[in-house]
Design a protein around this nucleic acid. Structure first.
Lengths: 151, 151
DNA sequence: TATTGTTATACTCTATAACTATA
DNA sequence: TATAGTTATAGAGTATAACAATA
């Protein structure tokens, strides 16, 4: 620990470099998670995010989904198109604005969500199995502060 | 906070879902960092990792780089090829094994590293500017445990 | 003119398999 | 047979620009 601190002042060690550690951890998690979504439900992560947000929030426009997911409008548009083609989401006209539509889960989409959500929570619980409640809250807090600092 | 805990027991909220938060934080950081590498030094992240490891460790085989970076042998091979074509790394025969070579930084590679490393450390310091030393150590610890749990 | 959303294109990272040359 | 490394190919995520329709 003392060695780390002293070296860290002047030299870079990839193994302790935050962007690297963050990337490795995130990649390990998302590889595991995306395999589960893909294998069991034939969903990409981007599609799963839309389903999760629509399940929480009800009908939303594409623009609202951009704000809710940190995905850009191109990704939203493509994920929504794929889900619509599978009948998992539905579009209703947006009375006040002809450019936009309200997207929401279909019955099939809600049924799929009801299947996935418990599995997603179980995977998360598994990842955090040996974390205390305090550590979980701290991790979320630290990640949000990193995210804010990077934007 | 009470609401979050109570909802969290039964429902999934993307905004508080660890794989999502981790992905968003990692993506925000690596977008910012990779733009700097790319724009200033014309390096991909994978290439930068090789340079950083070779700067720390001296001559290594591709296999040793796989172990040191969590990149697979395909990524190592491609990054090494690109760096060698630019004259940033050199290869020496591995006396005992004709299939393998020892890779190391050239003088040009070391000069490039000497330029990048301080900037990389400055970017990291900027990201962690409002973190205490304790928080930094904790974040690294939590990320490593997540990574271990995901593998 | 500006905004919502779509399409086209390209780049990075990753995963897999097929291949070579050595061991 | 097994291992070190290379090449080919494809999928997923993201970024940018050009575009159509509407505001």
């Amino acid at each position: 620990m003392r060695d780390d601190r002293e070296i860290g002042k002047h030299r870079l060690r990839l193994d302790h470099f935050l962007p690297y550690r963050l990337s490795v951890a995130s990649n390990a998690v998302s590889t595991r998670i995306s395999r589960a979504y893909r294998g069991t439900f034939d969903l990409k992560v981007t599609e799963w995010r839309l389903i999760a947000i629509l399940a929480e929030g009800g009908a939303m426009t594409a623009q609202a989904l951009v704000g809710a997911t940190r995905m850009d409008k191109v990704s939203i548009s493509r994920a929504a198109k794929a889900l619509q083609q599978r009948g998992l989401i539905e579009a209703e006209p947006h009375g006040a604005d002809g450019r936009s539509r309200f997207l929401s889960l279909s019955d099939g989409g809600r049924a799929l969500y009801a299947e996935i959500a418990p599995q997603a929570l179980a995977m998360e619980a598994n990842l955090l199995a040996d974390f205390t409640g305090e550590e979980r809250a701290l991790l979320e807090n630290l990640l949000r502060r990193i995210e804010d600092a990077a934007m």
